[in-house]
Amino acid sequence: MSTNVERIILAGFGGQGILFLGKVLAQVGMMSGKHVSWIPSYGPEMRGGTANCTVVISDNPIASPLVTVPDTVIAMNKPSVAKFATRIKAGGMLMYNSSLIERQDFRDDVRLVEIPASEIADDLGNPRVANLVMAGAYVKYSKILDFDLVIKALPTLVPSNKKEMSEINRTAFEKGFNYAKEKKYMFGRYVYSVFKGMGN
């Protein structure tokens, strides 16, 4: 990262745990001594449509927590790519759930990272932990958050009525991290036009 601030937009279907994924990143950022902010989309689109949130992790106090041009977009479904990917800063990163989004031609100035998050989560027996697979991959690629700190934070973030999720959350996070470790990202050398037909 060239600057000391990371602006992330996370997006997907309602129910994919987007807000929780953002909360994990913000919480771990805070525990690392950084300044953080987390803003959810709370509009009517939450019911059945896309959910998204904005996370900023910064070494300095955060002036505006609102993000127009993100450094990173984490997209869990197709409409999210259509909505947010064109805004990514040059040299930024698009990390997407390749189980639900096929490879697309894209801008050549953005790192593309494909993570089959839903498949990995299915293999673990719970499709709902795809968000934590993504968290693992993100922590590996972004290098701004510490692996061990996430492991420490995860159980504290799970609501008390979902304590049984702690174990599988951790496994999903590790799987995502390890998957990213073995895989090299690529620079998109594709054209934006292919995305245009994808609108939501």
């Binding site: 909360k23 805070m30 300044h35 902010s37 987390w38 803003i39 709370y42 927590p65």
Partner: peptide
């Protein structure tokens, strides 16, 4: 406002 109400910060 809605942003400040919904936003999480330390």
């Amino acid at each position: 406002d809605g942003v400040l109400g919904q936003m999480m910060e330390p």
